[in-house]
Amino acid sequence: MEHSHDHHTPEPYKYAVHHSEEDGKKARRVIWNMFWVLLAITTVEVTLGLIWKNIGVSWGAVKMTFIVLTIAKAYYIVAYYMHLKHEVKAFKNTIIVPFVLFALYLLYHIITEGVYSEMMEKWLY
C-alpha cells in the first residue's frame, strides 16, 4: 500500500472467506429455507404438468406459469446459492447484464428470423 499514489488509500485486497459461528447459523437457515422454496416450486411444476388437463386451464397459461416458475427458481439459485445477491454492484452487473442481453438477442433472432426456415423448406425440398 505504501506505493499507492492515489490521494485516497485503496482498501487492501481482501475477500470474505471466513465467517463466525453466529453468521454460519444464519447462513444455514437461509440455505434450508431456499431448499424448501426450490422443492415447493418443483412440486408445483410436476403436479401442474400432471393435472392441468383435468382442471380446465389453457395450455398457454400452463406454459407461461412454467416459465415464470423456472425463472423464479433460477433467481433463488443464483442469488442465494451462488451468492450473487451479496456481491458488490459492479460484480452483479458484469455477470447479469451481458448474459441477459445476449440471451434476449438470441431469442429475438430465433423468433424474427424463424420465418425463413419455412421458406427454405418450401424452396429446397
Binding site: 500500500m1 485503496p10 487492501p12 481482501k14 472467506v17 453468521d23 460484480f91
Partner: peptide, 24 residues
Amino acid sequence: MSNSTVMDSKTAWGGNNVSPYGAS
C-alpha cells in the same frame, strides 16, 4: 460476512492489490 482475509498476492488482481469486484 464479517471476517475477511487478506489473500496472498498470487490470487489477487494486479494494481495495488485492489479488487474492484471484492472477489478473487
